[in-house]
Design a protein around this nucleic acid. Sequence first.
DNA 1: CTGTATCCTTCAAGATACTG
DNA 2: CAGTATCTTGAAGGATACAG
Lengths: 115, 115
Amino acid sequence: MITTDVKELQCPVALTLDIINDKSKIFIVYILLGGQKRFKDICEAFSQVTQKTVTQKLKELEADHIIERTVFAEVPPRVEYALSPIGLELKKVLDSMHAFGEVYAAKYGCKRDVK
Amino acid sequence: MITTDVKELQCPVALTLDIINDKSKIFIVYILLGGQKRFKDICEAFSQVTQKTVTQKLKELEADHIIERTVFAEVPPRVEYALSPIGLELKKVLDSMHAFGEVYAAKYGCKRDVK
DNA sequence: CTGTATCCTTCAAGATACTG
DNA sequence: CAGTATCTTGAAGGATACAG
């Protein structure tokens, strides 16, 4: 069977990976764990990534119900992004990553080769 | 300051993400949580990825001390991959992903658009 | 400020064939 | 069986300019 435009992920881990499919998205969640942020703030926290990419990742996260986007009718425009309730659930995943990172760094250091 | 060939990741989450930087590596860890596996078995569990990619990811994981590679001097050759002690620590990360995926699926289902 | 729209580059990964 | 060696391609992301 070939699914043409939809896939069904039986494994919850695969589902999670499909939602948080790259580093930049996890970073956005990480940033938003510190409270809601403006578009500009997210871009600045993300020096290695272009604005275009930030926009795209924010859209994907919003489409997946991980974050919520609020537009304020002001001049100049203001848009705030915040984690949704389900997005907040990702904190546990991030926490476990944090814990692993600390254990790993204690054993092997935190220096990494750049590819 | 510009680092030319090494980066130092202060944030443990960033470090973890740098080690487990894509879905395929997390999947390999996931597969190996079920016990040590042969190269062939890993390739087969990974129908969507080519052998070349599996080889590459295994090498990276080994270089990062996440997995251990054992060569048996047999004919035909046999190579087994297993999680290292630190690699086993990743189980907690996978567990939290599993938990999140279940919560998410209960709320939004497990069907995903294919890009 | 918060995005869109193009164009362009590069790099990861697929296909395939070959080796010890 | 467990890889390595090439070649190729497609999509992600950078740079830049523009819009509401």
